[in-house]
C-alpha cells in the first residue's frame, strides 16, 4: 500500500513538473535559452560574423534538447546493504540433516567467487528549461555465483540476484560553459529486487549532489551522489 502511495506521489510530481516546464517552454523565447557565452558572442560580433559561426561551436546546450547517458558507479553503503540481502538458498539448507547423496554432491562441488556488478545506469533527459531537464533513469546491478565441479570445473548451478530501478529524474543545471556543465539531480521511483524465490519491490530515491559533464554532442560525465545509482558515477552520453 505504501509503495502504491509512493508511486502515485512520484507520478504526480513528474506530471506537475512536466506541465510547469512545458508551459515555460511555450511562453519563453528561444533567445532566453541562449547561454551567457552566446549572449557575449551576440554583443561582440557583427551579424555577418554570427551568421558564419557554426551552431555546433556556439550553442552546445541549446541545440540538443535530449540526451542519453550510459554509466557505471561505485556503490554506496545502502546499495551494498541491498546487495547483501541476497541469500544463497541452497547453501542455507546445509545446516539441516543431509543424506549421503547431498554430502557427496557438496564434496564434489565448490562455490566459485561471488562477483558483483553493483550499478550500471541508462539515463534519458529532456531539457525543458535552460536549468532544468526531466527524464527517466534506470539502473541495474547484479551479482552472481556458480557451483562448479571440483575437478572438471563445469558449472552445475548458477545463483544470481539483480537489483533494477526505474526513476523519474529531475536535473538542475547550475553552471554552463561551452564544454562543461555542472548540475545536481534528484530521482524518485521504484526498485525491484529479483532473485529466484525471493523478489520484491520497494520505493527508491537517487540523488547526484554534484555532477559534471564535459563535451558537446558526445560527452563524458562524473557525479558524486547517493542512492541506488551509487556514490561515484561516471559514463558517457550523447546529446541529440
Amino acid at each position: 500500500m505504501r509503495i502504491r502511495i509512493f508511486m502515485l506521489l512520484v507520478a504526480f510530481v513528474a506530471s506537475l513538473t512536466t506541465v510547469l516546464a512545458q508551459s515555460n517552454v511555450t511562453t519563453e523565447q528561444l533567445s532566453d535559452n541562449v547561454s551567457a557565452y552566446w549572449a557575449e558572442q551576440q554583443h561582440s560580433a557583427t551579424m555577418t560574423q554570427v551568421s558564419n559561426l557554426s551552431p555546433d561551436d556556439a550553442l552546445p546546450s541549446v541545440r540538443f534538447a535530449n540526451s542519453l547517458e550510459l554509466g557505471t558507479a561505485v556503490p554506496g553503503a545502502s546499495l551494498i546493504l541491498l546487495m547483501e540481502l541476497y541469500t544463497d538458498v541452497d547453501r542455507g539448507l546445509q545446516s539441516q540433516s543431509r543424506n549421503f547423496s547431498q554430502i557427496l554432491h557438496d564434496a564434489s562441488h565448490y562455490s566459485s567467487a561471488e562477483r558483483c556488478w553493483p550499478c550500471l545506469s541508462l539515463n534519458y533527459q529532456h531539457s525543458v528549461k535552460r536549468w532544468l531537464s526531466l527524464g527517466v533513469k534506470s539502473t541495474v546491478g547484479w551479482k552472481t555465483r556458480s557451483e562448479r565441479h571440483v575437478v572438471s570445473n563445469d558449472v552445475y548451478r548458477r545463483y544470481s540476484m539483480c537489483l533494477a530501478s526505474l526513476m523519474f529524474n529531475m536535473r538542475f543545471s547550475w553552471l554552463h560553459r561551452d564544454y562543461v556543465s555542472m548540475y545536481s539531480s534528484l530521482g524518485l521511483g521504484a526498485m525491484a529486487h529479483i532473485q529466484f524465490g525471493d523478489s520484491w519491490l520497494a520505493p527508491m530515491v537517487d540523488a547526484a549532489w554534484v555532477g559534471i559533464s564535459v563535451g558537446k554532442r558526445v560527452y563524458g560525465y562524473a557525479e558524486f551522489g547517493a542512492g541506488v545509482g551509487g556514490v561515484l558515477r561516471a559514463g558517457v552520453g550523447v546529446r541529440f
Binding site: 546487495m83 554430502i103 566459485s112 550499478c119 571440483v150 575437478v151
Partner: peptide, 19 residues
C-alpha cells in the same frame, strides 16, 4: 567496477575420495 565480494571456496578433490 565489477568486484569479487566473496572468494571462491577451495577446490579439494580429496574430499570426494574421503567421502
Amino acid at each position: 567496477v565489477s568486484c569479487v565480494i566473496d572468494d571462491a571456496e577451495s577446490r579439494d578433490p580429496e574430499r570426494v575420495a574421503q567421502t
